[in-house]
Design a protein around this nucleic acid. Structure first.
Lengths: 215, 215
DNA sequence: TTCCGCTTCAAACGCGCGTTTGAATTTCAA
DNA sequence: TTGAAATTCAAACGCGCGTTTGAAGCGGAA
């Protein structure tokens, strides 16, 4: 008992530091990606010592794994988008819902949006940590695009075609999420408020559904 | 005259070193991007001294500018794809030609393919050097996607719509070019020979033209 | 109060990076 | 051949990175 109590109480301050580090790491990695985010910046934002990362998580990679686990948990707790919910919609509405949810980080800066930004980074330059992470427990979020695409493709579509189309669809919102800041500046000067988000969803959904020929 | 001769002859060996550095830098930056490519690797491949980069180009950024200038020159000398050639084709064929040319690096490893890979890197993480470079002399290559897209969009399409659609189209081949190596491994295991390239062009052109609804 | 594990802390380590340095070497006009 | 300019070279510099170190601080048990 005494051991347990001590562990419990001691872990109170431990949990405070751990939570602060995970929160700071989430925002830093969302901003700069895993490779671009530094331990020094993370500990600075968490108001913790640099060595705390190694003490509590064994290193930068361990902290990142913790962030990825939190992200997976958030997505699987239906905090984001559920495959069953998509199935209940028409294919067209499922596509629009998919695009809308993945483009949300353009206008919201909440926890889930930061997780999405991290995934957007990993979609263009996967870290070894991430690759190993999804190899062990592939997150459901990756099946969403395939699920949406499959409802449009014929049953006998080749696996290669399905892969092409899935990658094609998944990339579309990722690009805008990842590069939102850059697109806000010249020569593009795209400002994303909620109306612009709806127009972007409309445009992307139209392009995805009917292609250029019908825009 | 004597000064000129001296400069000319001296520049013979100079040009040898410069050319070797530019060639090595092109392949290194194509493989790892500007930030990921190191001066040490470049000089090693060029069999030159590390200090040569600073001596001849003033630094890593100056060398990169030289590579970008060579790329711009290659593209403007019709070594790649000409806007007028695209205009001479039907919109559908122009789109297919655009996609085909931008996907060529998947099967070819020539000079132009390396330039395209560099552009693919810059499309996701623009370096300051690149941003400054295109600010001074925007390369024609960037107008190609807009030119293709515009022929499908109605005349009165808003500037925002044109931008959305242009970015959307430009991203599609970039993704496959940039991540070819990763896509070759599980879980995707995509092998790109010339046949696969044609199928990818078909798929992307179909998706771009008619969307998911008609695949 | 004393002691002992847990946690924090400032400092330093080792590494790779782009760059600088100053001497050695090469080049070529005079 | 000579001397000055251009070029090459090995070595080192300064910086930021992730990580390690060992002492200091802290809190609860005896």
């Amino acid at each position: 008992m005494s051991n347990l109590d001590q562990a419990r109480v001691a872990s109170r301050s431990t949990e405070t530091t751990r939570a602060a580090l995970i929160k700071a790491a989430t925002s830093v990695f969302a901003e700069y990606g895993y490779g671009g985010g530094s331990v020094r910046l993370i500990t600075q934002r968490a108001m913790a010592n640099q060595a705390a990362v190694n003490y509590h998580f064994g290193g930068k990679d361990g902290l990142y794994r913790e962030v990825l686990m939190a992200a997976t948990r958030a997505f699987e707790e239906n905090a984001f988008l559920d495959a069953e919910e998509l199935d209940s919609l028409s294919p067209e509405d499922a596509l629009r819902r998919y695009l809308h949810q993945f483009l949300l980080p353009l206008v919201k800066r909440d926890r889930v949006s930061r997780f999405l930004r991290i995934f957007a980074w990993e979609s263009v330059q996967p870290s070894e940590v991430f690759s190993a992470f999804i190899a062990n427990s592939p997150p459901r979020i990756f099946h969403l695009a395939e699920g949406v695409v499959r409802r449009f493709l014929p049953q006998d579509a080749s696996a290669e075609t399905v892969t092409f189309a899935t990658l094609w669809l998944a990339q579309q919102p990722m690009f805008f999420v990842r590069d939102a800041e850059r697109l806000a500046q010249p020569p593009f000067s795209l400002k994303f408020d909620e109306d612009a988000l709806e127009r972007l969803v409309d445009t992307l959904a139209g392009l995805s559904l009917r292609g250029l020929a019908r825009v």
